[in-house]
Design a protein around this nucleic acid. Structure first.
Lengths: 97, 97
DNA sequence: AAAGTATATTAAGGAATCCTTAGAAAATGA
DNA sequence: TCATTTTCTAAGGATTCCTTAATATACTTT
């Protein structure tokens, strides 16, 4: 029952080609604690609250739900779907429902 | 920057036609505190950790990521996609990628 | 290979949040 | 209304997080 957030956060940050310090700066953190916190999130030592998760997801260009997705296929679906236009997305949803 | 979890949890529980006490029983909680905790989660007073969120999502038959989804269209997509077979889901992902 | 730099990780304690308890408030139905 | 079910809330002990300070790992250059 491990949280998928650590791994997903790390992979999303790598994909965005950011260091922990660059991400922490984007989030408006003081340099001194910023990287420590992000490291704690990525290693699973501590868990961010929702507001922080949302901020990080926005900074990394992934849907916040992606960080909590335990299913690999659904995770990929979220990433792909988030790149569709709102109209395309709604059409897809309609078709599946 | 409010968490979507309270609302999503409540609506998923309603959809499953369970009371807070029935859900708490399903989760193996002692009756005395079970409903208090679920109420605190649904009113946004407190936030569950990931393991608890996953347990609740499983008990309610929704993907755990759904509880954290702030986008309505993506939320609907997750619900619909979670009802597909693994093969259908993977084909859909392939098509979008 | 060593030194220097950048990047990432960790321990500890004060700060913040959660979980349990006990009870009260709403909602539902007879 | 009364009884019952269902949901909500305050308070404090228990737990977890955030900051600080320092160490560890990875990368570059010489």
């Amino acid at each position: 029952m491990q949280s998928p957030l650590p791994q997903r956060l790390k992979s999303a940050r790598k994909l965005a080609k950011l260091t922990q310090e660059q991400l922490s700066t984007k989030l408006g953190f003081d340099r001194s604690h910023g990287t420590a916190r992000i490291s704690q999130y990525e290693t699973g030592k501590h868990a961010p609250d929702y507001a922080m998760a949302k901020n990080m997801a926005d900074a990394l260009g992934v849907p916040v739900a992606y960080l909590y997705c335990d299913d690999e296929s659904l995770a990929k679906l979220l990433l792909a779907a988030s790149k569709l236009s709102k109209q395309e997305l709604d059409e897809l949803v309609q078709k599946l429902s």
